[in-house]
């Protein structure tokens, strides 16, 4: 699930959100794909997927998705069962009935 992966990796949230936006808006497409020669090939057949390719693919996939403002937008994950004892312990302090920590 995207969010939990993100939570593990997001050291710098500024970069996560603005990332490529730091230098201001692009005026035109000027980045030329650097030619990846055979050094990235595995066994002379497969090419390793670089992270930039991965994010490009992700952006492409998102292009025409349905717009939805929910937190779990289109993927419906299985939500943790909060009523089990251990989970309940951790959540109860969000309620006025929880034990005071002070």
């Amino acid at each position: 699930m995207a969010y939990f992966e993100r939570q593990k990796t997001s050291q710098n949230i500024m970069k996560l959100v603005y990332g490529e936006f730091e230098v201001g808006n692009k005026t035109s497409e000027h980045t030329v794909e650097s030619h990846e020669d055979s050094e990235d090939e595995i066994g002379g057949l497969f090419k390793k997927v670089t992270s930039s390719q991965k994010s490009k693919q992700k952006a492409k996939d998102q292009l025409d998705e349905d717009e939805c403002s929910f937190f779990y937008a289109l993927d419906k994950p299985v939500i943790r069962d909060w009523t089990t004892e251990t989970n309940k312990e951790s959540l109860i302090n969000c309620f006025v009935t929880g034990k005071r920590s002070s």
Partner: peptide, 26 residues
């Protein structure tokens, strides 16, 4: 709470339309 995907995209759009950048801290 944790930012939703939609909010992240919105922050990016805000920057593009208004030039506003938020300071984000975890």
């Amino acid at each position: 709470g944790p930012l939703s995907e939609y909010t992240i995209k919105f922050l990016q759009h805000l920057k593009e339309f208004f030039g506003v950048m938020f300071k984000l801290e975890v």
